[in-house]
Design a protein around this nucleic acid. Sequence first.
DNA 1: GTCCCCGGTTTGGTCTGACCAATATCTGGG
DNA 2: CCCAGATATTGGTCAGACCAAACCGGGGAC
Lengths: 254, 254
Amino acid sequence: MGLMGEAAEWEPVPRFRTFELVLARIEEQILAGSLRVGDRLPPERELVELLGVSRAAVREALRVLEAQGVLRSKVGTGPSSGSVITAMPSAGLTQLLRLHIALANFPFDDVVESRATLESASARLAAGRATEEDLARMRAELARMDEPGLSRERFNDHDTAFHVAVAEAGGNRLMADMTVAVRNAVRHTLLGAFHRIGDWEAVAARLRAEHHAIYDAVAARDGERAGRLVEEHIRDFHRDVVGAAGEDGPAGPR
Amino acid sequence: MGLMGEAAEWEPVPRFRTFELVLARIEEQILAGSLRVGDRLPPERELVELLGVSRAAVREALRVLEAQGVLRSKVGTGPSSGSVITAMPSAGLTQLLRLHIALANFPFDDVVESRATLESASARLAAGRATEEDLARMRAELARMDEPGLSRERFNDHDTAFHVAVAEAGGNRLMADMTVAVRNAVRHTLLGAFHRIGDWEAVAARLRAEHHAIYDAVAARDGERAGRLVEEHIRDFHRDVVGAAGEDGPAGPR
DNA sequence: GTCCCCGGTTTGGTCTGACCAATATCTGGG
DNA sequence: CCCAGATATTGGTCAGACCAAACCGGGGAC
C-alpha cells in the first residue's frame, strides 16, 4: 500500500482479517470489470461456501461495500432482491465527510474553501454545457425560493437543490457528487446559521438576488462570470452570514 | 434524509436494521462532539449490553465506521487497544472513489477535470501559504524524480508525492485529502499508461520540467502562475500521454 | 377459464454462545 | 532486581438456529 517510497523500513507484516479478504475478492472483481452495476452477488450463504469463511465475515464485508454506496441489499426472492452492485457514491461520500468534519479534522474554513473551488468550477462548466432542461431545473428552484413566507428549512433545501442543479449541469459527475456531499455534510450547520439570523427577509432577498445573477450568467453562457459569482456567493455568505450569526461548531474546537 | 423537497409523495416507511441503529447512536455522539479523536469506545461486549443488541450488529456498525476512516480496532488490552476514534479520511475516500471509478460511474475525463480543478486551486493556495518545510519536501521529491534510471513505478510514486506535497502545502486538509484520494484512485491506471509509453525518457524529461516550473511558481509566491501550470500539467499529461498511450479502462465502457 | 389467496421457498436480518489469538499486566521465582 | 509464565481483556471467527420480507406458484372459489 506504500504511497510513496520512504527510506527502507521494516514494518510488521499486516495480518488481514477475514472480512478484509472477502472484501478484496469482491473488489477484485469490481476493479477487473467482471462485476458491474446491476449485477447480483451470490447469496450470502453461497459466498460462505465459495470462500470458505463464516457468514459473519461475509456480512461484514458487504456492510462495508454498502456504506461505500457500491452495494444494496434487499431480502426476499424477487429479481431486485439479494445483494446488487449499485452506484450511489454521494450518500457514502456525504456520510464520510460529515463525520470527519464533525471530528474537526476538516476545519470549517476548509469546507468553505472547497465548496468555493468545486462549485465555481462546476458553474464555469455549466455555462458551457447546461441544457435547456438543466436551466429549467435551476429556474424551478429559483421560483420556489422566491415564494414569500417560505420557511428557513425549505429555503435551505431549495438553496441546496439550486447549487446541486448547477453542479450537475456542469456534466462532471465526480465534481457534482463531491459538491453534493460537501454541501449535505454541512447542511445541519447551515440550517443552524439560518435560524440564528435576525433579519431573515433581508438575507433571503440578498441570496435570491445572488442566485438569480448566477443563473443569468450560466444562461448567458458566460462561464467566467458564473464562476466568479458562485465563488463570491459562497465566500460572502459564510463570512457575513454564517460567521456573523455566531459559530455553530457541533464538535470543532476550531 | 430528504435532500430537496419534491412533490408530496408516499414512500414506504424505512425499516432500520439493527446495525444502522447502532451506527446512529455512535454517529450521534461523534456529531455532538462527545466522541472525539483518540477516545475509546466501550468494548464490543459492553456495547452489546448497553444497546441491547447482538455482538454481530455492533461489529457490523464498527466495520462501517472503520471503512470510513473514523475508527481503528486493535485486539489486546493495552492503552492503544480496543476501538479508538481516529481520523484517517483519505484511505476511506480513496477506496470509495476507486470503486466508483471502476464502476464507470465516474468517467475518466471527469477525474481529470476534478484533479485539474482541485490541484490548481491547492497550488494557488500553496503559493500563498507554503512554509519552507513544505518547499523542502517538494524539492526532495523533485530531486528523487531527477535521478536517472528511475523505474516508472518509483517515478510515479514520487510524482504523486510531489502533487500531494503541493496540495498539503495549500493548508486545506479537505482539498488535500480529496486530491490524494482521487490521485490514488487512478494510480493503477496512470501506472499502466506509464508502462505503455514508448519514449519514456522524453516523457520523463517533460514531466520533470513541468514539475520544476510548478515548484518555481510556488516558491516565487506566484499563485496565478502556479495554478495555471498545474492545470496545464494535468490536462496536457492526460491528453498527450495517458490518452495517446492507449486507454486502460479496467471497467470503463467508454 | 380466470382470479385470488395462501403456503412454500429464497434471501437477508438477528441472535446466542462458544472458542481462538493478540496484547498488556500481574505475579512469583531466581 | 529482573525476567518468565500465568492471567485478564479484547477483538476475530465460527457454527447454528430462527425470524421476516418478498416473490412465486398451485389450488380452490367463482
